[in-house]
Design a protein around this nucleic acid. Sequence first.
RNA 1: UCUCUUCUUUGAUA
Length: 384
Amino acid sequence: IATYASAIRLCGNSRSLSAARRIRDHLVGNGWDRNTFLGNLLVELFGKCGSLDESRRAFERIATPNTYSWNIMTAAYTGNGNLHDARRIFAQMPEKDIVSWNAMMTAYSQARHFLPALDMFDKMPQWDVWSWNAIMRVYSLSGSLDTAKNLFDKMPQRTIVSWNTLVAEYAQKRHLGDAVGMFEKIPMRDMVLWNEVVMVFLDVGMANEAIELLEAMPQRDTVSWNTRTKAFVQIGDLVNAKRSFDSTPKPDLASFTTMVVAFSQQGKLRNAREMFDRMPCRDTVAWTAMVSAYAQNGHVNSARNLFHEMPEKNLVSWNAMVAAYGQNCDGATAVHLFRLMDLEGIQVDSISLVSALDGCSSKTALAEGRILHAAAVELGFDQD
RNA sequence: UCUCUUCUUUGAUA
């Protein structure tokens, strides 16, 4: 079991989907895929690769799934932005532990569904530091930074994550004074915090200072390297961005996707596609980035083909495709897709609406405009 | 020095 486990983990590190499938087939062949521990690893592995079908099948093959199995299955869905199926799994779970509740609360929070997130918190049988950190973030994301700070002060325990969360929230909301104040009081500074500081420089348009700081840092992790690559992209230095990517010791999906977007923005569609093809495995984010790359460079048909090839689609992927049609003045198809989202069980958001409206400006018939207006009213966006 | 899952930093849509 240990041998198989390490083999699966190796795939996870290299994020190689084909290697993952080979191991999976091997385990299916000898029946070890029914083992809970190994099955759990497979569920997680396919989830991380954005292959939710295979993840679910691995889950279904486990003879006696435990709470870990259920939680990993939930995480696979939430990690790919599939709130719908995550909820379903959560509801079906025979036994929920604190991890299940925390995961579901965070899933709502990330989807910006703050009321259900608060509801989860209230319904939880007990709370741990993770729950407190997560609820603190719900408040800050929903705009109540003061409430978040009050929570931070009153929380029964705090970890380094609590501190890092608040610094990041202050920084993102441009309360730089508060961010610095927090930073100075932090008892222990880790890599996450330093990466946050680098991001502050990038966010305020000081890319060169960000790069200098990164180079002065004693340690760098993959996030640091990715941020460095992004900094070069931001100053329009594609050559050094590519160099930064090539120097990244352990590139992950974000490293590749950053380059896909960078090439696309410079109109280098071929390079973008090469980067995409070189990825050992592709998650929903990567697929969506490539769909948008085609769309933004005027290749709507290629965008559509790739969209249909995607193994999993979430809200953002759909929005990207709606926008693709909108930007290319095919308002009718954009609206059609917009309505299809509903049928697919995707909860539309304001971006879906704006993207569909984009193509409506002149070419779309009045009837389609009415559909969107009705949707806007329903969503409560009619005042905007 | 990686006993499987949940919190904070980097990558996708307007």
